[in-house]
């Protein structure tokens, strides 16, 4: 009786041990994939990276060429998306946090979350029908709007979360001093949540900087240096796509180098955010 009890116990314990190992292996596998992907980008990318590559515009096969215009284009698109998306997103987030107890707010919350899940290519189709078709022109403007539509719900939800972290006592203290609600929100609550909101905004920018699908038929691509909003514009991601599906070995190397530039930017933002938020929370 005692012996069978013990062996059953041992079986339970060993199953527990096995499952710990299995789940650890899952985590190890996921981290290995990350290392493999980032490692390949670093190794293949560093080989073709040069100062000229960062400033040149694309050239025909065999003549080298660079991603100067793509870097500028990506910055223009991100700037445009931020100018449209950040104010709207932050304002929506403030509304949800400060006045968000009603039914309207919960609808907005639900729609924002669901919009985050809408595939980015569908956002591209949407912006194509409302901007590219009427303007009869692919444009940087259309690309920026598409990225902004993706940004707004992300920024709104992170802003809301960050404002909710501000202690109610701060708010009550300011209200007790006789400040109107808008002064309390803009003068006390927003400054207290500012670093969190900035973090969320940076993450949203990092997220859309890697988007390709919504740019394919809005911003399209462009061979030359351009900052015009009513013209097509190049972007790092579309350039990476075009280079990597081409049949030329040389362009494949350029794709890896451009990816290294893009990933450096994205990882820098992610790690910086991690570093700054660690101190606060």
């Amino acid at each position: 009786m005692i012996t069978t009890g013990r062996s059953a116990d041992a079986a339970r314990r060993s199953l527990s041990g096995v499952m710990t190992t299995v789940t650890a292996a899952c985590a190890f596998f996921a981290v290995t994939m990350l290392v493999l992907i980032l490692g390949y980008i670093a190794v293949r990318g560093l080989g073709s990276l040069s100062l000229q590559f960062l400033t040149d515009t694309p050239k025909p096969v065999g003549e080298g060429g660079g991603i100067g215009n793509s870097i500028v284009g990506t910055l223009v698109l991100l700037g445009l998306a931020s100018v449209i998306g950040l104010p709207l997103g932050v304002a929506t987030g403030v509304y949800l946090a400060e006045f968000g107890s009603g039914k309207f707010a919960s609808i907005v919350r639900f729609v924002a979350d669901t919009l985050t899940g809408v595939p980015s290519i569908v956002v591209g189709v949407f912006v194509y029908t409302i901007l590219v078709l009427p303007m009869r022109q692919f444009s940087a403007l259309a690309g920026g709007v598409a990225l902004a539509v993706i940004m707004i719900p992300i920024v709104a939800r992170t802003t809301e979360e960050m404002i909710r972290l501000v202690p109610a006592s701060l708010r009550e203290g300011a209200l007790a001093l006789g400040a109107p609600q808008w002064r309390v929100t803009t003068g006390v609550v927003l400054p207290a949540a500012a670093s969190g909101i900035a973090t969320g905004a940076m993450l949203a920018v990092a997220r859309v900087s890697g988007e390709t699908a919504p740019l394919l038929f809005t911003a399209l691509n462009y061979k030359f240096m351009s900052v015009r909003l009513d013209q097509p514009i190049a972007s790092l991601t579309v350039q990476i796509y075009n280079y990597s599906i081409s049949p030329y070995e040389e362009w494949h190397s350029l794709a890896w180098a451009a990816t290294l530039v893009l990933m450096t930017m994205i990882l820098f933002i992610n790690i910086a955010v991690r570093f700054f938020t660690r101190k606060k929370f």
């Binding site: 981290v31 980008i41 293949r44 900087s209 890697g210 991601t237 990476i240 990816t259 990933m263 994205i266």
Partner: peptide, 24 residues
Amino acid sequence: PITFLVELLAAIPSVVYGLWGIFV
């Protein structure tokens, strides 16, 4: 740290997964 690393996997753009997929 592992949580952070797994989250980084989500930060990699789709087109980069595609590039890695084609060549690796």
